[in-house]
Design a protein around this nucleic acid. Structure first.
Lengths: 228, 228
DNA sequence: CGCGGCTTTGATGTTCATCAAGTAAAGTGG
DNA sequence: CCACTTTACTTGATGAACATCAAAGCCGCG
């Protein structure tokens, strides 16, 4: 692996860069820029011109849209090794969503034109890229459908399990988002998110201390997510 | 254009096949199979092995998932020139959704391995393919978000406008789906879909005769879709 | 003809959004 | 550092939206 990249644990590199010949990897490494972000930073906003392909090296970000009357709707929450750029990156000229930082993040950026140039020359790379982008888009679509078919309690249980299992791999974790953001994610009101959380707490399914959550009864929560 | 394909109006051909050299187009044409389907036919089912890349030449199909207790959830409705295969086609081995036919259709199938082989050799083709697949996935995600944020009347208005504007380009059209399927699409009960339609009829926004719909007051319907 | 599926309407109770009010926490300016 | 403002969080009350149950009409098909 070309040491110029200096990204020892980069999954993008290990997953795709094997498709490169040495000199191509060099181009890639020379072109990429790593940008550190702090909690609360905006990476880019809806409507911005798309100039970079963005990949999340570390941290946690949220993808969201803002509607005309200023209300946000969260599309998904992305962790390390997820792309920040979704499929539109090659078909759109401007961003169709905004990205902000939930936990300090490092984002690896490559000029989109550079990316296209490499893709044109290397079918294997492009196919790999398409597979990865495809599986992420699929995940987002699946998640949207799962959320759509649940009611309030099921929605809240589902999202708690997502944090616990997909993101933190732990029964104890700090919520990276406010109650309002959870509401914006799953399409309900802030008050009802809080009510559902309170009821889970009263029924001893959760321990809640501010944003700190401990799942006490995983099976019950899963039951509510699946059949509640 | 290679006459062997015999698909004069194939957008897939006009959009992408320009990226092929003559002999590649020949391979493509030799490999593809066109399959006619009748209303009600199942094109493939959730869990089937993915062997073909599928493209909708004509007709109308629905993409849907079936949950453990047998309830369907419609992902989207696809018209001519949409892909039937979504992004998962390159990253999954088995279908993650089913496809059935709403209006007699012709589907063009290409073996997935053949497709990958072509993609490997032709970066321009792959990039084009990724753009098209990306814009379709984007559309599905966007639609899921739009539906999620609306209430019953807004949802029904939204879906009627989708049929009128995106699919039929006419204020008068025959619904290709039952009331129950509309409910499965937008995540509400059949009864409430019917109630919403009846109210639109009573308020002179629609003329309804079975599955035949005429939009009488487009502006009011758009208002309900956007702010109702 | 009769059965099953689709459609429609009504009645009923639950779920949910909205409004209101209050506490706690976190940021801001003097 | 403290007063002040703002934002986040929480609970209750209320009415509207919605799902569920029930019943009846309609149509196509074996």
């Amino acid at each position: 692996m070309d040491p110029r990249c200096g990204c020892d644990n980069c999954e993008l590199k290990t997953a795709f860069f094997e498709s490169f010949r040495k000199e191509e990897l060099g181009i890639f490494c020379d072109q990429k820029v790593e940008v550190p972000y702090k909690r609360g930073d905006i990476v880019f906003s809806e409507g911005d011109e798309i100039r970079y392909f963005a990949y999340l090296k570390s941290g946690l970000v949220k993808l969201f849209r803002t509607d005309p009357d200023g209300k946000d709707q969260i599309i998904t929450i992305a962790g390390p090794f997820d792309f920040v750029s979704l499929l539109g990156v090659f078909s759109e000229t401007h961003q169709t969503y905004s990205v902000s930082v939930l936990e300090d993040a490092v984002i690896c950026c490559i000029e989109i034109e550079q990316m296209k140039a490499i893709a044109l020359k290397n079918g294997f790379f492009t196919l790999n890229l398409m597979e990865k982008l495809g599986s992420i888009s699929n995940k987002i679509i699946l998640e949207a459908l799962e959320i759509r078919k649940r009611h309030t309690h099921g929605k809240v249980a589902y999202i708690l399990l997502k944090f616990s299992q997909s993101i933190y791999q732990s029964l104890v974790f700090d919520l990276p988002v406010s109650r309002r953001e959870i509401a914006e994610y799953i399409g309900m009101t802030t008050e009802n998110v809080i009510r559902a959380l309170s009821e889970f707490r009263k029924e001893k399914l959760l321990r809640i201390n501010g944003r700190e959550i401990e799942i006490l009864d995983l099976e019950a929560l899963e039951r509510i997510s699946n059949y509640g």
